[in-house]
Structure formats: structure tokens, C-alpha cells
Design a protein around this nucleic acid. Structure first.
Lengths: 214, 214
DNA sequence: ATTACATGTCAACACCCGTACACAAAAGAT
DNA sequence: ATCTTTTGTGTACGGGTGTTGACATGTAAT
């Protein structure tokens, strides 16, 4: 008795479904056990409710699964960024609102972020590379976003990239702090959030004073 | 024919020597293979030139070895910091000199830093905790160092910690970039170094504008 | 209903793993 | 020189791993 009327979503094929099940299983295991690199193909298959050899129908090896996870993680993040950009900001509270939105998003999707944070440096070369590429791309997008603010008119695009990099470096660290927090600790979360705001404000102050060499 | 006259160093006991050999072997393997968490007790023992069961004479398990590595890594870093602090700085070029010293040090001890960077988020809980503790301690020390500059007179100690945290967050990211560089690429290294300088300068500018709430 | 393809299962393989135990060698103390 | 402690060796065990090839089942198209 599955109602198929309201949604225009097609029922995904069996293949798609277990492919997703495998990716989901991997994310779950990363939460439970240490890291993706430490997972075994068999564990993932088992949790996905599938026999080990079935794994190969969807991915040639664990590395490929990892790359798929990197992709889906950043795809979601990019969408958030696009939406936020489109919505615009109350001008006066860009910092507060941006930080709040981001932190809320991280807390809503802890598994993907945990995966990325953990594999960024300890994963296989292929996965590390993919993540690094995505982050570079993210910095670029942020730089062009910043260039739209009149505040930064006098800053060269190279320097804007540098400042965007600084921002992302710090937000990355904040992400990691948030993920280490216990799930329910609202109190600590507020502290981390406030510190992140202040740090961004310091960067903002510094950027406003910055004079690009001509 | 070992000359023992010049140095006052005692010949370390056999136990100490293989203990060191084990730690060394682990660091080497981290460089070669992916991460410490991915190493097996047997691999480490093999590379240290010792039978697997001998491992237990020195560490109860791999986690203990990891903790020992965390300790030795940060002990060295703290010493560098102490020396630098004692030496003082040419005032005018604090940023440039600090960054240069640090980067030189990272490049001189890549194995320890790589270990820390990789295990910081993907290691076992015990190791992650130890690293986090050390970094927090490092931030504190930096904050009190900063408090000695007249520039920061008007900043509360809480805010100084916040700024120190920002600095460390960014230098951490720089560390990671440097470690990803190929060993011989002087050119890229200069770029990373310059960007790091600029970023620290932005933070410095921002900090100078910062007014602590009373 | 038959055919073709996609997906999943089963059994087996050779390998590496952590660890327990009993024993041998080396180092240090008396 | 003898005894004790520390350190290293050899063997063995049960268990998890990735990957193989041949086979079964489901699913969609003709």
C-alpha cells in the first residue's frame, strides 16, 4: 500500500536503492567506528544488508565509495551556499547570520561533515585530493561572493582569495569543534558559536584595514 | 669502536632503544602508508626489526604507542616555542620571522607533524583527546605571549584567547598545506609562506581594531 | 512467455591480524 | 659466579579481510 500519487519522485531502481544503502551504511559506520579508512568492505556490506560480493556491483572498491561520499557531501553544501546567497542578508548582521546558518547546517548533517573532516588528511590519496579540490573551489566561490560587497572594493582579487582562505580555514576549525560536541549540549554550542562570530569579526576588521599593494 | 668520551649521554638501555625503534618505525610507516590508525602492530614490529610479541614489552597496545608519539611531538614543539620566546623578536618583523621559523620547523620534522595532523580527527578517541588537549594548551601559551605586547593592552584575556585561537586555527591549516607539498618544491613553499604571512597580518590588523566589551 | 540484463548469493582461497603461552637469551644485581 | 629481572623468540589459535568464479534470482523489454 504505497501511495505514489502525491510525489513526482520515481521509485528508484533496486540498484540505486542498494547503492544508497551502501553509502548510508558507510556514513553510519564512520560515526560508530573511527574512520572511513578503517572500514572494511565486508562491514559496510553487512550493515547495508547485502552479501560482500554484491558490493562490487556498485563500486569497484572502497575508494570509489569514498569518492561518491565526498561528492554528495559537497553537493549539499554548495546548494546551501547558493540558497543563502539568493536569500540575501540583513546587511547589518551578515556575520551573525552566516555563522548561525552554517552551524545549524553542520549540526543537521553531522555524518557527512564528520566523514569529510576525518578523511581530509587521513584518507587515501584519491579521497584527500577530491576533498582538497572541493575546498579550493569553495574558497573561490566565497571570494567572488565577498567581491560583491562594496566594503571590499579596494582589495585585489588575489587578496580577496587570501582573505576567503583565512575565513574558510577558521570555519573549518569551527566545524571540527562542533562535531566533537555531544549531541545535546546546547550550552557549549552557544560558546563555540559566539567565539566563531568574534573570530570572523576580527577577520572582517582586519580586511577593512587591508590595503592591497598596487 | 664507539667513542663515548665527548658526550655526557648515557648509552640507552636495550629496552629504551627498541622502544624508540618502535616509535620511529611507526612514524616511518605513517609517512609511507596512510595513517597511524591504519597501521598494524605487526607492521610496526617488523619495521622495528623485532618479533610481534616483543611489542608488548614496551606498550600494551597501539593506542599507547600513539599517545607516546603525541607526547614527543608536542614536547619538541613546546621547546621551539620556548627558545623563540627567549630569543625575542626584531619587533618590526614579528609576523615574518614567526611564520618563517615555524614553517622551517615543520619542514624539518615532517613525520611528527604528519602524524599529528592525520590522527587529530581520525585517530582513536584517546589519541584525539590527547592532541586536542595539547592544542588547547598551545593556544593558552600563545595567548599569554600575546598579552606581553603593548599593542594588545586594551584586549581582555578572554578575547586574547579568542584571537590566539584564530591564529592557531589558521597556522594549523597552513601546516597541513605545507605537509602536502612535495619535499623539494621551494617555489610553492614560498607562496604558501607568503599567504600565511598575509593572513596573520590581517588577523593582526583586526586585533588592533578590536575593542573588548567592558 | 521468452529473452536479456542487472543484481544478489554462495563457497572457497590465501592472507594478515591480535594475542596467549612457554621458553631462550641478555643485562644487572648480589 | 649465581640469581633475578628484563627483553626478545617461536609457535599456535581463532577470526576478519579482499577477491575469485560459478550460479541463482529478480526485473524489464520484446
Amino acid at each position: 500500500m504505497v501511495s505514489e500519487t502525491a510525489t513526482e519522485q520515481r521509485r528508484p531502481s533496486r540498484g540505486e536503492r542498494t547503492r544508497q544503502a551502501l553509502m548510508n551504511a558507510a556514513l553510519d559506520q564512520v560515526d560508530r567506528k573511527g574512520s572511513f579508512s578503517g572500514l572494511s568492505l565486508r562491514q559496510v556490506a553487512r550493515r547495508a544488508g547485502v552479501v560482500p560480493t554484491a558490493f562490487y556491483r556498485h563500486f569497484p572498491d572502497m575508494d570509489a565509495l569514498g569518492l561518491a561520499l565526498v561528492d554528495s557531501s559537497f553537493r549539499a553544501l554548495r546548494q546551501l551556499m547558493r540558497e543563502t546567497r539568493r536569500a540575501g542578508m540583513p546587511e547589518k548582521q551578515v556575520v551573525r547570520e552566516s555563522v548561525a546558518t552554517y552551524v545549524r547546517y553542520v549540526r543537521a548533517n553531522p555524518r557527512h561533515f564528520r566523514f569529510v573532516v576525518k578523511e581530509r588528511f587521513s584518507g587515501s590519496p584519491a579521497i584527500r585530493d577530491a576533498i582538497r579540490r572541493e575546498i579550493r573551489l569553495f574558497v573561490s566561490e566565497l571570494a567572488t561572493d565577498l567581491s560583491r560587497f562594496p566594503l571590499f572594493d579596494r582589495i585585489s582579487s588575489d587578496d580577496l582569495r587570501m582573505i576567503a582562505g583565512l575565513t574558510v580555514n577558521n570555519m573549518t576549525a569551527v566545524t571540527e569543534q562542533i562535531l566533537e560536541l555531544p549531541d545535546d549540549d546546547q550550552e557549549e554550542e552557544v560558546l563555540v558559536l559566539r567565539e566563531a562570530e568574534q573570530q570572523l569579526r576580527v577577520i572582517l576588521l582586519g580586511a577593512m584595514q587591508w590595503k592591497s599593494r598596487e
